[in-house]
């Protein structure tokens, strides 16, 4: 899943596919020539998707039933990998960590709504400067972000613990202590995605017609009531979009863990590592460090199923709370 940063209010709405009416299929037949052109024009993208996305998925699915030699070459082992998977503590731990990340990561959404609402105030001075500041982490490379946070979090020489020491608190080894590592990483995750989410929400808020607020204030609704009764319901498509992206993004978390928690040998010597390893990191570890590619494929296939299920649930639930219009 790639999130493109072109968030306008319209994009957000069209990002959610409208139900396809059955009639449309019949109409297509009359438009043969036009359809041929349409196919031709989408062919480059379609081909790209097929070759770089769909085909690897199919291949990975196949590999999940194989065992690999140390340098390639594989043999069919049927369901062996899945059987190991079901009984593997490491997978279970990684899954638990990933779910915790995902749930805690959702806390970033109310935070983003709050900041967006503040930045949306009509007479705020220097608003562009604030918006740029909030967006900065989004355009910074994730590895650079993780590296800087790694230094900030350093238990002995980090800025955070230095500031804490000024008020007499001895801070922990944030990313090497099993008790804090997970939360330290969630905080960075939320911080990085905040800017992107704010932009989406700002766009959503600015597409809400002013008249609603005027009418509401004539009827005597205060700022809080307006926010609850007008902004939130009309923002629900953006909320839905962001929550879907946030869940998928959290489930696929890798770079932060890789840079801040380490990989391979370094990860194994990090006592907090079992508490922060995510499913995708485990996949990477199995595929490229211990070279168990078939098993790694089985791990990501399980993750794929999980993502599909969670996203389907979200799409079902949206009917209850998302208002288009």
């Amino acid at each position: 899943m790639t999130a493109t940063v072109t968030g306008t209010a319209d994009d957000v709405r069209t990002a959610v596919p409208a139900p396809v009416p059955a009639r449309r299929r019949r109409r297509w037949r009359h438009r043969g020539a036009e359809a041929a052109w349409a196919y031709l024009l989408i062919a480059p993208t379609g081909l790209g998707l097929a070759v770089f996305y769909l085909w690897p998925v199919v291949q990975t699915g196949y590999f999940s039933f194989t065992e690999w030699g140390p340098f390639g070459g594989h043999e069919w082992v049927g369901l062996d990998n899945y059987r190991t998977l079901a009984a593997d503590d490491e997978v279970l731990t990684a899954l638990r960590n990933t779910v915790t990340y995902t749930v805690l990561g959702l806390l970033g959404i109310p935070l983003a709504v709050l900041f967006a609402a503040l930045l949306n105030r009509p007479r705020l001075r220097g608003v562009s400067a604030y918006r740029a500041l909030f967006f900065l982490p989004v355009v910074t490379m994730p590895v650079a972000v993780a590296m800087v946070w790694r230094w900030l979090y350093n238990g002995d020489f980090g800025l955070i613990n230095y500031l804490l020491s000024l008020v007499g608190v001895e801070g922990p080894h944030w990313i090497a202590d099993p008790a804090t590592a997970l939360y330290a990483m969630v905080a960075v995750g939320i911080w990085t995605s905040l800017g992107y989410n704010i932009v989406i929400f700002l766009a959503g808020m600015q597409s809400i017609p002013r008249e609603y607020y005027e009418a509401a204030s004539i009827d005597g609704a205060g700022a809080l009531a307006q926010f609850r009764r007008i902004t939130l319901p009309l923002l629900s498509p953006s909320l839905f979009f962001v929550s879907v992206l946030s869940v998928i993004g959290s489930l696929q978390l890798f770079d932060l863990v890789y840079v801040m928690g380490g990989s391979g040998q370094a990860a194994r010597a990090n006592p907090a590592f079992p508490r922060i390893q995510t499913v995708v990191h485990l996949f990477y570890d199995k595929a490229f460090y211990t070279n168990d590619r078939g098993y790694a494929a089985a791990i990501v296939m399980a993750l794929l199923v999980l993502i599909v299920i969670l996203t389907a649930i979200q799409f079902r639930l949206q009917k209850r709370w998302v208002h288009y219009g």
């Binding site: 979090y153 002995d156 080894h173 090497a176």
Partner: peptide
Amino acid sequence: DLKTMTDT
């Protein structure tokens, strides 16, 4: 300890 040596 390992925590310190993980950080630095």
